[in-house]
Amino acid sequence: MSATETGDSMLVQVERDGVVLVLGHRVGEGRPLLIVPGVMADAVSWQPVVDALPAGRPVYVLNRRGRRPSGELGDGYGVGTEVADLRRVLDEVAGRHGGDGGVDLFGWSYGGLIALEAATRHSGVRSLTLYEPVVRPFGAQVLDSLRAADAAGDLDRAVEIVNRDVSGFSAEYVAELRRSPAWQVLRPLAAPLGRELTALNEHHADLAAYGKLDMPVTLLVGGDDDGVGPYWEPFARIAGAMPRARVHVIPGQGHLAHVQAPAALAAALTQALALA
């Protein structure tokens, strides 16, 4: 692992099978927290949550492969690729902090699925917090459209598809988003989207294995998604498989609290970590 430090933060690099994975890192003392974003997100987009977390503990945010400055998805990409990456990162992060204390792991959306799978395969995960994790089937109805957009190199169309046809946002919302500076940030993040959703829908989650996890688990759901919307069904399936997990609702939020209410999400995460 190598690191480039700037003030109280740094970029950390981990290599696995020739692919470089880059993490944002807030320095600190004690047991580290590792954040795994989902699709259409990277370490930069999660920085407001990191900034809102109480100072002190070290925090890492993984730029999963397929988003800069990490490497490309590579041949044979699947959920197994992501899980192997995360297990490697967990080893390295734990090693930076003595190893014995383990790592608190947080995953959002597709990153939540990856975190779940890694937690069943890595003894160093001390607690697990998941914000609206997803399992198959999810977004399968848009795969053909996403593949067509990818073949045409049309990142604008890919951003539109994920917001309108997966997340269910209105045409007015997407039109306003297109006019905002955020659109240009989202375009490159959409490049791996088709392959990521394909991998998600090809992966058979072992729900029974999730229920056997013996570390503290907190499942976060936005109040606006509680019982409704495209993210509720996969969340409910995972929650049903993990009856010992604590479920916490973030009032007034949907799937994007890291963008729309980072302080509220940081507060919910902090509360979960206090119970670990």
Rank of each mutant, 00 (worst) to 15 (best):
L155D: 11
D104S: 08
G124N: 06
A118V: 11
Y173D: 03
Q141Y: 07
A190R: 10
G107L: 08
A175N: 03
R126Q: 13
V134G: 08
R96L: 14
L128C: 10
A149S: 12
T120Y: 12
L177G: 01
D156F: 07
P192C: 14
D104Q: 07
V134Y: 02
S167W: 11
L143G: 13
L177H: 00
V159I: 10
G112V: 12
E176G: 04
G124A: 14
L116W: 08
G194C: 04
R147D: 15
S127G: 12
T129W: 02
G139K: 11
S123R: 15
P137S: 04
S170G: 04
G168I: 04
D150G: 07
A148C: 00
S123N: 13
A149D: 11
I161G: 12
D144K: 02
P192E: 14
E160A: 14
A94C: 02
D165N: 01
V185F: 13
V185K: 12
R147P: 03
A171Y: 09
R164H: 14
A149I: 01
R121A: 15
L116P: 07
R187T: 15
L116N: 10
R136L: 15
A171W: 01
V162G: 08
T129D: 05
Y173T: 06
E117P: 09
F106V: 12
F169H: 00
G194F: 09
T129L: 03
V185I: 02
F106D: 00
D156Q: 03
G107C: 06
L189I: 14
S180F: 04
L143M: 12
D100H: 03
